[in-house]
Write a protein that binds this DNA or RNA. Structure first.
Lengths: 208, 208
DNA sequence: CTACCAATTGACCCACGAGTCAATTACGCT
DNA sequence: AGCGTAATTGACTCGTGGGTCAATTGGTAG
């Protein structure tokens, strides 16, 4: 099994640890994104990475740990992308749209990465599920602030549960546009966001 | 194995076929709804129904066929509920809301039934996936007409893809409210629908 | 060149779950 | 009561996939 060292003074062979790790992680992201947790095998990940199954285990431990690592990686990228937006832009629908655009842009090369965090069929109580759930909660608190502000600014001001429900809906909308993206790969983050803006406009107009 | 007969003139034992079938189907709906396809075992279904595993196979064949049967059952109930709404109400947002209310009401006792149709992690190419996909498509064409009408009536009239994207978003919104319902079982179909109406109002107000 | 050592793997083990079959049970008819 | 029949099941097989281990490979230091 590989030791916990990156420099290679003695007994080095094959690829440097960091590269190998990135390579396997990338393969795992692709496989998990396409097949989900249960339909993806460690063999498939190893094959896609071009290495043997034991090596994947040596680098990431169990399948559960590998998935958790992948989900954490995705979550970290997403959070890093939207934190500046939430901190800088004034709350409101435009901020929500900008947040959405940043989310699309973050997973631009592999849109299915998003599913790692939003897969609801993970083994109950597993580390993978805990990481994914935690990631969703952090994204909720950050990304939905704009929409929540919009809700609070409305003359109706629903009860406390409305904000929670709104968060769920907001995330589902992003997920829906992500999955729609899968079938329309020619779309760009910008066009997707504009498209959603049009939908909002249409909805607004039809209710005015 | 049970024969294909319902009346019981000779060699009868245990429960009548129709009751037994309904009993197993119900157990399967509960199990699949809670754990999804891959995490649910035939043993678990049999145990929940209070029968043995071979009996489940005798009644429904393979696991795949059982899931397909469950999904078809859910789809049939959902379609039967919303067809009258779509045919009678005038297109527009109110019709969409009424459709939503009927969907909630249909799965009132077991909201997780909805997930049988909207599980994206089904084995690729399986009968279960085909049934679920077909059900989603039928629901799309029916349930999204109101929203599509709203989109067309807007002054913006987006391109042809907008309608497709809008359908995806619409279904995701319903799914999101369903899953939100799981964690708030005290909610009713009516209150859920009203809540979503409030969210729409707030969104409209914040953009006017 | 040689010894050493980490990286890498072929081959294996094993748990779990789908699916099957012979055997058993109990109901209805005579 | 006793037989025929269909419902029901205990106990089994078997393929699949997660995980492990001893053995091999090929760099690097001396």
């Amino acid at each position: 099994m590989p030791a916990a060292r990156d420099a290679a003074p003695r007994g080095t062979r094959g690829m440097p640890r960091v590269e190998r790790e990135a390579q396997i992680l990338r393969a795992a992201l692709e496989e998990f994104g396409e097949g989900g947790y249960h339909q993806t095998g460690m063999d498939a990940v190893a094959a896609r990475a071009g290495v043997s199954k034991p090596l994947v285990h040596a680098y990431f431990g169990t399948k559960d740990a590998l998935y958790a690592r992948c989900a954490a990686d995705v979550a970290e990228r997403l959070l890093a992308a939207i934190v500046p937006v939430v901190e800088q832009a004034p709350p409101g629908v435009p901020m929500a749209l900008e947040t959405m655009r940043m989310l699309f842009a973050t997973v631009r090369e592999r849109p299915r990465d998003w599913l790692l965090v939003y897969d609801l069929t993970l083994p109950a109580g597993s580390e993978a599920e805990q990481v994914a759930t935690a990631a969703r909660e952090r994204l909720t608190k950050l990304g939905a602030q704009g929409v929540r502000a919009a809700l609070a600014a409305s003359p109706l001001e629903g009860d406390a549960l409305d904000a929670d429900a709104m968060n769920h809906v907001w995330q589902a909308v992003v997920t829906a546009l992500m999955t729609w993206w899968f079938d329309h790969p020619e779309q760009t983050p910008e066009r997707l966001t504009e498209r959603f803006g049009r939908l909002l406009d249409a909805l607004t107009a039809s209710r005015g």
